[in-house]
Computed example of a mutant assay.
Amino acid sequence: MTYRIFLVEDDRSIAEGLQHQLEQWNFEVRVVQNFRGVLGEFTAFDPHLVLMDIMLPCYDGYHWCREIRRVSEVPIIFLSSASDNMNLIMAM
């Protein structure tokens, strides 16, 4: 079985680096293309795991986490350089 990981990251160099590494470990990785349509891409890909940045164009990662939670209980891991206390609390 190949596990599918949905990567929601707007920095292309980070996204490409993560995708490359994860694919080396035989994961199937899809990087979001449309930051206004994250939920649609998520649903179409049906991943086993979501790696989500907090600061994104259009809507932030918290918004997309709430939207995904309406349709799925897939694990979501926030990957972010945001380190202030409010972001730490909100991500829990």
Rank of each mutant, 00 (worst) to 15 (best):
T2P: 07
T2Y: 07
T2N: 12
R4W: 02
R4L: 04
I5H: 07
L7M: 07
L7S: 07
V8Y: 07
E9R: 04
E9G: 08
D10R: 02
D10E: 10
D11I: 12
D11G: 00
R12I: 14
I14G: 03
I14S: 11
A15T: 05
A15W: 09
E16P: 00
G17E: 05
G17A: 11
Q19L: 02
H20K: 09
H20S: 09
Q21H: 08
Q21N: 07
L22N: 05
L22H: 05
E23D: 04
Q24Y: 06
Q24L: 12
Q24P: 00
W25K: 13
W25I: 00
W25Q: 14
N26Y: 13
E28Q: 14
V29Q: 09
V29Y: 10
R30P: 00
V31Y: 04
V31D: 02
V32S: 15
Q33D: 13
R36D: 15
R36V: 00
R36Q: 15
R36W: 02
G37S: 13
G37K: 09
L39V: 08
L39A: 08
G40W: 01
G40C: 01
F42D: 06
T43M: 11
A44Q: 14
A44H: 10
A44I: 01
F45Y: 15
F45K: 08
P47W: 12
H48W: 10
H48A: 15
H48L: 01
L49V: 13
L49T: 09
V50S: 11
L51A: 11
M52N: 09
I54A: 07
I54M: 07
I54F: 10
M55G: 02
M55F: 08
L56M: 07
L56S: 07
L56N: 07
L56E: 08
D60V: 02
D60K: 04
D60H: 05
G61S: 06
G61D: 06
Y62N: 02
Y62K: 03
C65H: 06
R66P: 00
I68R: 01
I68P: 03
R69C: 04
V71W: 03
S72C: 03
E73P: 00
V74Y: 02
V74M: 01
P75C: 03
F78A: 04
L79R: 01
S80V: 04
A82L: 15
A82Y: 11
A82F: 08
D84W: 10
N85D: 15
N85A: 15
M86D: 14
L88P: 00
I89V: 14
I89R: 13
M90Q: 14
M90P: 00
A91E: 06
A91C: 10
M92T: 11
M92Y: 08
